Each structure stands twice: as structure tokens, then as C-alpha cells.
Amino acid sequence: MKVIFLKDVKGKGKKGEIKNVADGYARNFLFKQGLAIEATPANLKALE
């Protein structure tokens, strides 16, 4: 799953980066902790 990092995550990505991560890791950790959001077209446009 492609995500946009909202904060730096050690070993995974830095704020503003778009990367592929495992679906479960994204849903169960990154999204719940507020560290990333899904890289949807609307979210990508908002990032610009």
C-alpha cells in the first residue's frame, strides 16, 4: 500500500515521502499512530 508519511518513522521513511509499505503495517500502526495517510489521488493533490 502506498502511504504518505506525516512524520519521520525510523527505518521506514521521512515526513513528506511516499512509499510502499505492507498493508497491515499501514493500517495497524502508521494510520492509528497518525504517522501516515493513504496515498490516494486526493491526498497526493493536497500534499502539493
Score class of each variant (00 low, 15 high):
residue 12 K to F: 15
residue 45 K to Y: 09
residue 38 E to S: 07
residue 15 K to F: 05
residue 11 G to Y: 08
residue 2 K to T: 13
residue 5 F to R: 00
residue 22 A to N: 14
residue 24 G to Q: 13
residue 26 A to Y: 13
residue 1 M to N: 05
residue 13 G to L: 02
residue 38 E to W: 07
residue 22 A to I: 08
residue 12 K to L: 15
residue 3 V to Y: 00
residue 28 N to L: 12
residue 5 F to E: 00
residue 44 L to P: 02
residue 46 A to S: 12
residue 25 Y to L: 08
residue 19 K to W: 08
residue 40 T to S: 10
residue 16 G to N: 07
residue 32 K to H: 08
residue 20 N to W: 15
residue 30 L to K: 00
residue 9 V to G: 01
residue 47 L to K: 05
residue 25 Y to V: 07
residue 45 K to P: 05
residue 33 Q to K: 14
residue 13 G to V: 06
residue 7 K to S: 11
residue 44 L to A: 05
residue 17 E to F: 03
residue 42 A to F: 07
residue 4 I to G: 00
residue 24 G to E: 15
residue 28 N to G: 10
residue 12 K to T: 13
residue 44 L to V: 11
residue 37 I to D: 02
residue 25 Y to M: 06
residue 18 I to G: 01
residue 43 N to L: 07
residue 16 G to E: 02
residue 39 A to E: 02
residue 29 F to K: 07
residue 24 G to V: 12
residue 24 G to M: 13
residue 44 L to D: 03
residue 7 K to D: 07
residue 1 M to G: 04
residue 9 V to W: 05
residue 43 N to Y: 06
residue 28 N to P: 01
residue 25 Y to G: 04
residue 41 P to Q: 10
residue 19 K to N: 05
residue 1 M to Y: 08
residue 40 T to P: 03
residue 43 N to W: 05
residue 32 K to N: 09
residue 1 M to S: 06
residue 28 N to R: 12
residue 1 M to K: 08
residue 14 K to I: 10
residue 12 K to Q: 15
residue 41 P to D: 12
residue 31 F to E: 03
residue 33 Q to A: 11
residue 10 K to G: 08
residue 40 T to E: 03
residue 14 K to M: 13
residue 34 G to R: 08
residue 35 L to Q: 04
residue 38 E to R: 09
residue 9 V to Q: 01
residue 3 V to N: 00
residue 28 N to H: 13
residue 23 D to N: 13
residue 26 A to H: 05
residue 1 M to L: 14
residue 18 I to V: 13
residue 35 L to N: 03
residue 39 A to P: 02
residue 11 G to L: 05
residue 25 Y to Q: 05
residue 45 K to F: 08
residue 41 P to L: 13
residue 37 I to G: 01
residue 43 N to S: 08
residue 27 R to A: 07
residue 4 I to K: 03
residue 36 A to H: 00
residue 39 A to I: 03
residue 25 Y to K: 07
residue 33 Q to P: 01
residue 3 V to H: 00
residue 22 A to K: 12
residue 33 Q to R: 15
residue 36 A to T: 01
residue 8 D to R: 07
residue 1 M to F: 09
residue 8 D to P: 05
residue 4 I to S: 01
residue 12 K to R: 14
residue 45 K to N: 11
residue 20 N to L: 15
residue 29 F to N: 06
residue 40 T to G: 03
residue 1 M to V: 14
residue 26 A to D: 07
residue 23 D to W: 14
residue 4 I to T: 01
residue 42 A to P: 08
residue 11 G to W: 10
residue 9 V to R: 02
residue 14 K to G: 06
residue 32 K to E: 10
residue 9 V to M: 05
residue 26 A to V: 10
residue 17 E to G: 02
residue 32 K to R: 12
residue 12 K to E: 13
residue 25 Y to T: 06
residue 28 N to D: 13
residue 12 K to I: 15
residue 47 L to Q: 08
residue 8 D to K: 06
residue 34 G to Q: 09
residue 37 I to V: 13
residue 11 G to S: 07
residue 48 E to T: 11
residue 10 K to Q: 14
residue 28 N to A: 10
residue 45 K to L: 14
residue 48 E to N: 10
residue 27 R to S: 06
residue 47 L to V: 10
residue 4 I to A: 02
residue 46 A to R: 12
residue 17 E to Y: 03
residue 34 G to M: 09
residue 8 D to W: 08
residue 29 F to T: 08
residue 37 I to H: 04
residue 6 L to S: 02
residue 35 L to Y: 11
residue 19 K to T: 08
residue 18 I to Q: 04
residue 20 N to Q: 14
residue 8 D to N: 11
residue 7 K to G: 06
residue 23 D to V: 15
residue 6 L to F: 03
residue 48 E to S: 13
residue 11 G to F: 08
residue 38 E to F: 05
residue 10 K to M: 12
residue 21 V to T: 04
residue 20 N to Y: 15
residue 33 Q to S: 10
residue 6 L to Y: 01
residue 35 L to T: 03
residue 6 L to K: 02
residue 31 F to M: 08
residue 31 F to I: 12
residue 6 L to T: 07
residue 10 K to D: 12
residue 29 F to L: 08
residue 48 E to L: 14
residue 47 L to W: 14
residue 43 N to Q: 07
residue 26 A to R: 03
residue 22 A to Y: 11
residue 15 K to I: 10
residue 29 F to M: 08
residue 6 L to H: 01
residue 11 G to D: 09
residue 17 E to D: 11
residue 46 A to G: 10
residue 25 Y to D: 07
residue 21 V to Q: 04
residue 7 K to E: 10
residue 27 R to T: 09
residue 48 E to Y: 12
residue 4 I to Q: 02
residue 47 L to I: 11
residue 24 G to T: 13
residue 39 A to Q: 02
residue 6 L to A: 02
residue 15 K to V: 09
residue 27 R to K: 12
residue 14 K to P: 01
residue 12 K to Y: 15
residue 27 R to F: 10
residue 32 K to I: 12
residue 8 D to S: 10
residue 36 A to G: 04
residue 13 G to P: 01
residue 46 A to H: 11
residue 15 K to S: 08
residue 22 A to D: 15
residue 5 F to I: 01
residue 41 P to M: 11
residue 24 G to I: 12
residue 48 E to M: 13
residue 38 E to M: 09
residue 9 V to S: 02
residue 2 K to A: 11
residue 21 V to S: 02
residue 38 E to H: 06
residue 17 E to K: 03
residue 41 P to E: 14
residue 36 A to F: 01
residue 21 V to R: 00
residue 20 N to F: 15
residue 21 V to G: 00
residue 32 K to M: 12
residue 37 I to F: 04
residue 23 D to H: 14
residue 14 K to A: 09
residue 43 N to A: 11
residue 13 G to T: 03
residue 34 G to P: 00
residue 38 E to D: 04
residue 2 K to Y: 15
residue 28 N to Y: 13
residue 44 L to M: 11
residue 7 K to F: 14
residue 26 A to F: 14
residue 42 A to N: 11
residue 8 D to Y: 08
residue 43 N to I: 08
residue 6 L to I: 11
residue 5 F to G: 00
residue 6 L to W: 02
residue 39 A to L: 05
residue 19 K to E: 04
residue 20 N to A: 13
residue 36 A to I: 07
residue 18 I to N: 01
residue 27 R to N: 08
residue 19 K to M: 13
residue 8 D to L: 04
residue 1 M to D: 03
residue 7 K to Y: 14
residue 40 T to W: 03
residue 46 A to N: 12
residue 15 K to Y: 06
residue 26 A to N: 03
residue 25 Y to R: 07
residue 39 A to F: 09
residue 3 V to F: 00
residue 40 T to F: 04
residue 47 L to Y: 14
residue 20 N to S: 14
residue 47 L to P: 05
residue 36 A to E: 00
residue 35 L to H: 05
residue 34 G to K: 10
residue 30 L to I: 02
residue 1 M to P: 04
residue 38 E to Q: 10
residue 24 G to W: 15
residue 45 K to R: 13
residue 44 L to G: 03
residue 19 K to F: 06
residue 20 N to P: 07
residue 41 P to W: 10
residue 19 K to V: 12
residue 32 K to F: 08
residue 22 A to W: 11
residue 13 G to H: 12
residue 21 V to Y: 06
residue 31 F to Y: 06
residue 5 F to W: 02
residue 39 A to K: 02
residue 2 K to V: 12
residue 35 L to K: 04
residue 31 F to V: 08
residue 38 E to A: 10
residue 44 L to Q: 06
residue 42 A to K: 09
